[in-house]
Each structure stands twice: as structure tokens, then as C-alpha cells.
Write a protein that binds this DNA or RNA. Structure first.
Length: 694
DNA sequence: TTTAGGG
DNA sequence: CCCTAAA
């Protein structure tokens, strides 16, 4: 192990909307640069860094004006439904792309919009996608139809066409790549006709409730990775071939939107299809509300940033040593201000009943591509393959950089989203709805997974060296995934060893975000919230959060074990049901802070501090043991202690989450008892004093 | 701002 | 984790 070597992670070009200029901090700029000591960098740190960055970004990205590229990653099928609006500023692209790694499960994206005249789209919009098969099926409009672009146009995004009626003007091409590598070079596709009827799902222009899974799921051929012509990617494809995908394990056996009642384990039993209400358009007979299953595992925000522009100033991410004014102030500064602030904007409550958007996230959202800047030479490689994002061309760079690695995550794909919206809704409202859904997913806790050679790197404590992430050979196959933070999952779901259930490596879990986010179609979405925190802070906070009690010499855990954002290894396939804004329109956008379960080392630090300080001095505890953990407030610590005490009292079987060593729990109990006693004594003393005075 | 507790 | 009364 080479000590003191530093790895340099520069994640650039996340394809999430850039922060509003005005509110961008100088250090933000959409780039995160992280320097950590090589010997300290563990996989987990990497995860935390990535996650932190992402969440940070998402917080700052409510900007509705940002173009959205919705991508559907279908395991075996690739359907393209794309809409390009005249309005550039509000351009919304919905397309699907392949995931190239899932074996089963058909994820369908279906869209149907009508009455779009208000938005200058006179054509009825009706798209369907969902085709299984060994390859990737493109559903395109008829090229001959003047209104519609060619398949390629749709794929590549050249066409200006709006949706046609796919039922009547549709050509379906199954891109049966025999090998993804075959097409990686030029991104060309080989269309293969397939039976349109197999696509099913849409009948008479309406989408059945089960449409999302009614694709030819029986098609079982293994999907191949696909180099998609990603129009939204500005980086040219590199020469590299696509590493054959398969996010190993991303076996999508989740039946998205399925009605199967026995699919409990997968957690996606009942798609939340809460109807949106409150739209102005008069209800129609039969309510032809249509569910748009933007079953996109890959939602991609239009890139605002270009990769390769690495921030050079390390100071930007340098841990700022704040003055010791008040911990509260500091804590406040790292809270989700923007979220709170939104209250001001959505005051105009809309008659949304319950829920409006429901989205389900599939656990695996491989990053759309990893972009690697080799030694600043600008040599970049982008791979649009939905599967494992390989990073190539870095050997030389890697070594010459002396263990510095620059990774540019081209884009993160947002987990699956389900949206239901009346067909009479305007495109504008659709956009907002989508935006809300995306924001909900991003804001409600995602975690990042690391894939190496198609395999998930589960051990967060391993160093990059140990995992081979530093290995130039393996670096080609480094990838990241976004997964719903499953910590909210019901215990029954995530309590056991998930690996025993899932043959594959990649977990399959859904997160549902029911949200009542219907905004008045005419009302602009909440204004972009000026981000308060900055990225580097966020990242740093993740790192700082390692409790550093003054005397933690007894910390048995190695420095690597300090997990900041706990990634419960067993919650992989859990279904996380995160109620998103159930309350009222008023507080719609007020998101909770992301869950950050206490790691054992944090608990250790907390226990130690409380043992010394007692249970009534949380501010001191915070200062003492968590001064650097900006995301831990004294309230958090107090709450944690409360739960620790509770945990210690219940039987081990009842406990959940990362197990806390019994030794620690014992200390919790004794400390709690001791300080309770002290408190009682104090009170008794005071009482007697007052009595005497009286 | 902190503490203390309920949700 | 959130919210908030009370100190």
C-alpha cells in the first residue's frame, strides 16, 4: 500500500441540471473534485462522495426549464418515444434507452397525450414502447410519414417530429445486436422487424393498467449492451467498445407496475397510480386519464456541463474550518434550505387529491456513461451503454498521474419513474410533473453503487486498491449505479440476506414516491431555489462526518470502517415506500433530509461522548464528537441516543438496520441509567432546596 | 439557540 | 428524521 498517495476524483458532468447561476457558489460549478488519501479512500467513501454530489445537485436542480431527457432503460427492449417540442426552452424529450443488462422484466414506457394544441403540438401524441426480445426494439414513427422522423432520427434525436400515433404509424425495429461490441463502434443499429402485436400494451389508444408489464416478457434472450446513440450526450463516442454490459445481475425480474400480488419481495407489487387531480381540463366521460409509465430507469437530465472540465482548484473542496460561532448556525447552513424555501412558492394549492406523481425507482440505474479525462488531455471516452459504464483509456493516465484517478460520470440515470397524468394535461404540466417526479426521486435518498466488471462492489470498506478500482484493467469496467435508499424499507423485506434470493448480483428494488405534486398546469413550478450549500461542502461533510472523538484511540474499527452514509448491504431488494409530500400542497416540496443511518463508529463516538457528558448536553456532545459531521445536528444525536436506548432494550431479533455491537448497547444502557440517575438526583436536590426555601 | 419530547 | 413548545 502506498501511503500518502492521493486519488483524485473529479466527477464532472453529472447530467443533472446545473444550478442556477446566481446561486451557484464559486466552488460548485457542477464539478466535484475530491482528494483523498489513497490509503484512506475506501469504496464507501467513493460512494458517499458520489451520492453526496448527486444529491447536492438534485437539490439545486429544480429548474423546470432544464431540458429533460427521459430515458427508459429497458432490459431487453429499447423503445424510443421521443417528443421534441418547438419550445426549446421547455424541451422535453422522452425516450427510452436500453439497459442492456436485465434479463427479464419488461419495462414499458407508455405515453399518450392528447389535446396538445395549447402547446403547439397539434398532433396527437401517443407512444408506446415495450418490446421484449433479445435485442432492442425501437418503436418509431413511420419514416415515410412526413410528420415523423425516421427511426434513426428518433434514436439520435435529430428529428423534429412529434409523436405520431404509434398505433397506426409505427415501425418497430428490433435491434438484435448479436453482440453489443458489434455496434459499439458506430452506434449503428440493425433493425429487425418484429411482430408489432407483441408489443401489446396499448389498445385503442388507451393503455391498460397492466401495460407496464404486458410486453412480451417471455422473450428470454439475454439482452446485450447497447451503445445508444445518445443525442443528449455531447461527448463523442470513444473508440472503446462497450464492455458488454450486464450490470451483472441487473436482472430486472421486477415486474414494474405488475399486479402480481406475490411479488412482494420485489417490492413493486402495486404501482402507485394515483391519479392526478386538479387539472383544469374538464373531465371526460370515462376519464381517459392515461397512465404514463415512464418506466425509465434512465432519466437523464440534459447535460449542462461538459465533461472534461475539471476543476483545478483544490481549495474549492478543501474542508473549510468554520469558525466556532455556533454549531446551530453551521448546522443550519447545511440543511435543505432550498426545500424549505419552496414553501413560499407552492402556496397556491391545487386541488390535488392524494398523490399525483408516483414514481418507482428501480434499484439499478447504472450511470449512463463514465467519462474519463485522461490527464487532462481531454481524451475522453463516453459510453452510452446503459449497462456497466466502462472507463477506458486511462492506463497511461492512471500511472502517470501517480495514483490519481479522474472519473467523470457522464450522467446518472434516475431510477424508474411512474407518472400518471390526464391526457388533457398540457405538456407544460407534464414537464412539471416529470420534474417533480425526478426531484422526488433524487431528493429522497439515493445511494450509489459501484460496479466493477459488472459486479457490484459490496464491501464498502475495501479500498480502491483492494477492489481493483485502481487497477487499470478493471477501471475499464467501473460503473456506478443509483439505487433507492432502501433504508426505509420494511424490515421484513430487507432483513435477510438478499443474496440468497437474488441469483444475480444486482439488487432489485423499487422505491415508490407517491407525490402529490400536481401543479396547476398554468402555474409555473416553484422557482429554482437558490442552493445554499455547495457541493464541496456536501462532499466534505460526508468525509468529515467521521466522528473524531478526542480520544478514540480505542476505536477498534479501522479508519476504513467509518461509514457515513450507511449502505445497508441487506436492503438491496427492499421496497422503500417513501411518502412524498402526503400532507398538503403547501409543504409539498419540503423534502426530508436524506436518511443517514449512524454507522457503528458513529455510535461508538456518540456513546463515548454521552458517557462523559451526559444526556442533557447534546450541543456539547455534538461539539465533542461530531463537530466535523455537519449533517449530524445535536437534535440528531439526541434522537439517535433515544433510539439507541430503545434498541438496547429490545431483543436483538427486533432490531434492524446495521447491527450495533452489544457492547455498545450495554454501554448505552449503563450510561443512560447513570445519567438518568444523575438527573434525578439533581432534580431531587433542587426540589429539596426549593422546599427548604418555602 | 438548545433542550426535551412527541410524531 | 421532523416539528415545536419551552426554556
Amino acid at each position: 500500500m502506498v501511503l500518502q498517495k492521493r486519488l483524485d476524483y473529479g466527477f464532472n458532468g453529472y447530467q443533472v441540471p446545473a444550478m442556477p447561476r446566481a446561486s451557484r457558489s464559486a466552488r460548485g460549478r457542477g464539478c466535484v473534485r475530491k482528494k483523498v488519501d489513497n490509503n484512506q479512500m475506501c469504496a464507501f467513501d467513493l460512494l458517499a462522495t458520489v451520492a453526496g454530489k448527486l444529491l447536492q445537485e438534485s437539490e439545486h436542480s429544480p429548474a423546470p426549464s432544464n431540458a429533460l431527457v427521459v430515458k427508459d432503460q429497458h432490459p431487453v427492449a429499447k423503445g424510443i418515444v421521443k417528443q421534441e417540442q418547438v419550445d426549446e426552452e421547455n424541451q422535453l424529450k422522452i425516450e427510452s434507452c436500453d439497459q442492456g443488462s436485465c434479463n427479464e422484466s419488461l419495462v414499458a414506457s407508455e405515453i399518450r397525450l392528447q389535446d396538445l394544441k395549447r402547446n403547439n403540438i397539434s398532433k396527437e401524441l401517443s407512444g408506446v414502447q415495450s418490446v421484449g426480445g433479445s435485442g432492442h426494439s425501437y418503436i418509431t414513427t413511420n419514416p415515410e410519414h412526413s410528420e415523423y422522423g425516421s427511426a434513426e432520427d428518433l434514436v439520435v434525436g435529430k428529428g423534429k417530429s412529434t409523436f405520431g400515433n404509434f398505433l397506426n404509424n409505427v415501425e418497430r425495429h428490433s435491434l438484435g445486436f448479436s453482440k453489443c461490441e458489434d455496434n459499439a463502434e458506430d452506434g449503428s443499429v440493425r433493425p429487425v422487424n418484429i411482430d408489432a402485436r407483441k408489443i401489446g400494451s396499448v389498445t385503442n389508444g388507451t393503455i391498460p393498467d397492466t401495460c407496464s408489464t404486458e410486453g412480451p416478457m417471455e422473450l428470454g434472450r439475454k439482452p446485450q449492451a447497447l451503445v445508444s446513440s445518445d443525442s443528449s450526450v455531447e461527448v463523442p463516442l470513444g473508440r472503446d467498445h462497450v464492455t458488454h454490459s450486464s450490470l451483472s445481475g441487473c436482472r430486472d425480474d421486477v415486474k414494474v407496475g405488475s399486479r402480481d400480488d406475490d411479488e412482494n419481495s420485489s417490492g413493486c407489487t402495486q404501482p402507485s397510480n394515483v391519479a392526478l387531480k386538479g387539472f383544469r381540463s374538464p373531465p371526460r366521460i370515462g376519464d381517459r386519464r392515461i397512465r404514463k409509465l415512464l418506466a425509465s430507469k434512465y432519466w437523464k437530465m440534459a447535460p449542462k456541463l461538459k465533461c472534461g472540465e475539471l476543476s483545478n482548484s483544490d481549495e474549492e473542496t478543501k474542508p473549510v474550518h468554520r469558525s466556532r460561532k455556533s454549531s446551530y448556525t453551521r448546522q443550519r447552513s447545511q440543511r435543505n434550505f432550498p426545500l424549505k424555501k419552496r414553501k413560499l412558492f407552492d402556496g397556491s394549492s391545487i386541488s390535488t387529491s392524494d398523490g399525483g406523481i408516483s414514481s418507482e425507482g428501480v434499484s439499478n440505474s447504472p450511470i449512463k456513461g463514465i467519462h474519463k479525462d485522461v490527464m487532462g488531455s481531454g481524451a475522453t471516452v463516453h459510453e452510452a451503454s446503459g449497462a456497466s459504464s466502462s472507463v477506458a483509456g486511462l492506463q497511461a493516465a492512471f500511472q502517470s498521474r501517480d495514483s490519481h484517478v479522474k472519473l467523470c460520470i457522464k450522467s446518472f440515470c434516475v431510477p424508474e419513474l411512474f407518472i400518471e397524468i390526464p391526457e388533457t394535461a398540457t405538456v407544460g404540466s407534464l414537464k412539471r410533473t416529470v420534474m417533480e417526479a425526478v426531484a422526488a426521486v433524487l431528493g429522497d435518498g439515493l445511494r450509489v453503487g459501484v460496479l466493477l466488471q459488472g459486479k457490484k462492489v459490496r464491501d464498502d470498506n475495501k479500498t480502491l486498491l483492494q477492489t481493483g478500482i485502481c487497477n487499470e484493467d478493471k477501471l475499464d469496467t467501473l460503473g456506478f449505479t443509483l439505487e433507492p435508499n432502501a433504508t426505509d424499507a420494511p424490515p421484513s423485506v430487507c432483513s435477510e440476506d438478499p443474496s440468497s434470493r437474488l441469483p444475480s448480483d444486482t439488487p432489485q428494488s423499487l422505491t415508490r414516491y407517491p407525490a402529490s405534486t400536481v401543479l396547476d398546469p398554468g402555474t409555473p413550478i416553484a422557482s429554482p431555489d437558490p442552493p445554499v450549500t455547495n457541493i464541496s461542502n456536501c462532499v466534505e461533510s460526508d468525509h468529515d462526518s467521521v466522528p473524531s472523538p478526542t480520544d478514540m484511540s480505542a476505536d477498534k474499527t479501522t479508519s476504513d470502517s467509518r461509514a457515513l452514509v450507511a449502505v445497508p448491504a441487506l436492503s438491496v431488494e427492499a421496497l422503500a415506500v417513501v411518502p412524498f409530500n402526503r400532507k398538503s400542497r403547501r409543504s409539498e416540496m419540503v423534502q426530508r433530509r436524506i436518511r443517514r443511518p449512524f454507522s457503528v463508529s458513529e455510535v461508538e463516538a456518540l456513546v463515548q461522548a454521552v458517557e462523559k457528558l451526559g444526556t442533557g448536553r447534546w450541543r456539547d456532545v455534538k461539539l465533542r464528537a461530531f463537530d466535523n459531521a455537519k449533517h449530524r445536528t445535536y437534535v440528531d444525536l439526541k434522537d439517535k441516543w433515544k433510539t439507541l436506548v430503545h434498541t438496547a432494550r429490545i431483543s436483538p431479533q427486533q432490531r434492524r438496520g446495521e447491527p450495533v455491537p452489544q457492547e455498545l448497547l450495554d454501554r448505552v444502557l449503563s450510561a443512560h441509567a447513570y445519567w438518568s440517575q444523575q438527573q434525578a438526583k439533581q432534580q431531587a436536590k433542587q426540589q429539596s432546596e426549593t422546599c427548604l426555601l418555602l
